[in-house]
């Protein structure tokens, strides 16, 4: 019995290998065609002046033109401003909310999780339309009514270059925390009770426990959320596209929107491809930087 099992097992492994390839075949074909090929193609296009019938190679012209383009730098600046204003606030809000949900009964926890997650489920196009009207510049506009209670004057929220970016930021604050609250809560529930017990024996206060136990334990979660939020924020373009079109005076033109405009408004595919690769490089560098400096004692 034992003697005959050996060759049988060997044959199975060989057979399994073939099944392995068969099972991933469709995934690999889809990947090769719709991800790998486009990435390689993007590299090639970025060195071309693209024309449907016969493109010409123009070396690094698309890249040098991009670096000389004031609008490109402005879009980088806008993207950074948007990221710096939205990501930390959204993360902090999520963290605080998760901490507050933690001591509640299970049922109540579920209710709040669902409530905060609901905007994530709604389509981005629908939400952008609603916010468009909330920011209506007329005195009757909802947001103007709201700031009126505090004695502030009417603002032309999306129509003025002074407030347009801020308006998009407010929208992000109130609609981008659904997933991170749930992830934070799951991480909080995963912290071993023995840490708290030891701290209680030492007479630690709530804030001490928060600082010495919770925040260090949640570091991997924070890093994960931070990296994914920044990657997402660097690519953002849909709200700006639908609500301001990048205006007024390019005040809300983010890199993602600039690339979109170059590609599908001006049909400068070469330039768009070059800019998208620069964006990819920036995202890669920023992610690497975060893992290196924030993730020192986080092991994955």
């Amino acid at each position: 019995m034992a003697q005959s099992a050996q060759p049988v097992k060997k044959r199975k492994i060989k057979g399994d290998g073939a099944w392995g390839y068969a099972f991933i075949a469709v995934a690999l074909i889809v990947y090769a065609l719709f991800t790998a090929y486009p990435v390689i193609s993007a590299f090639l296009i970025s060195f071309q002046e693209y024309k449907p019938l016969g493109s010409t190679y123009i070396g690094f012209d698309n890249y040098t033109a991009t670096f000389k383009d004031d609008l490109f730098w402005k879009s980088i600046k806008n993207t950074l401003v948007y990221t710096v204003l939205t990501v930390p606030v959204a993360l902090l809000l999520s963290f605080l909310v998760a901490i507050m949900i933690l001591p509640l009964r299970k049922k109540l926890q579920t209710v709040f999780k669902a409530v905060y997650y609901l905007p994530v489920v709604a389509s981005g196009v629908a939400l952008s339309l609603v916010w468009l009207w909330i920011f209506d510049p007329m005195p009757g506009g909802i947001f103007n009514q709201f700031i009126g209670w505090f004695g502030a004057h009417n603002q032309n929220w999306l129509g003025s270059s002074a407030t347009a970016m801020f308006s998009l930021v407010i929208m992000a604050w109130l609609s981008s925390h659904g997933a991170s609250i749930i992830i934070y809560l799951a991480a909080l529930l995963g912290i071993d009770d023995s840490y708290y017990e030891a701290a209680d024996l030492d007479g630690a206060s709530f804030l001490q426990k928060l600082w010495h136990i919770v925040i260090p334990s949640l570091k991997p979660t924070t890093l994960f959320l931070l990296v994914t939020a920044i990657i997402g924020s660097f690519q953002v373009f849909q709200n700006a596209y639908l609500m301001t079109g990048g205006g007024p005076d390019h005040a809300t033109t983010m890199v993602g929107l600039l690339i979109f405009d170059n590609a599908f408004k001006y049909f400068e595919f070469g330039k768009a491809a070059a800019q998208s690769l620069i964006l990819a490089l920036i995202i890669a560098l920023v992610s690497l930087f975060q893992f290196k400096f924030l993730g020192k004692d986080v092991d994955y």
Binding site: A27, Y31, L33, F34, T35, A36, Y37, P38, V39, S41, A42, I45, I231, F234, Q235, V255, G256, I259, F260, A263, F264, F269, A272, A273, Q275, S276, L277, L279, A280, I283, A284, S287
Partner: peptide, 21 residues
């Protein structure tokens, strides 16, 4: 790993070639 690496690539990179394809 090659598959996973794709998750790091912003969709702006693939959008133009994908559209052409």
């Amino acid at each position: 790993s090659i598959l996973l690496a794709a998750m790091m690539i912003p969709y702006q990179v693939t959008q133009v070639p994908l559209y052409i394809l």
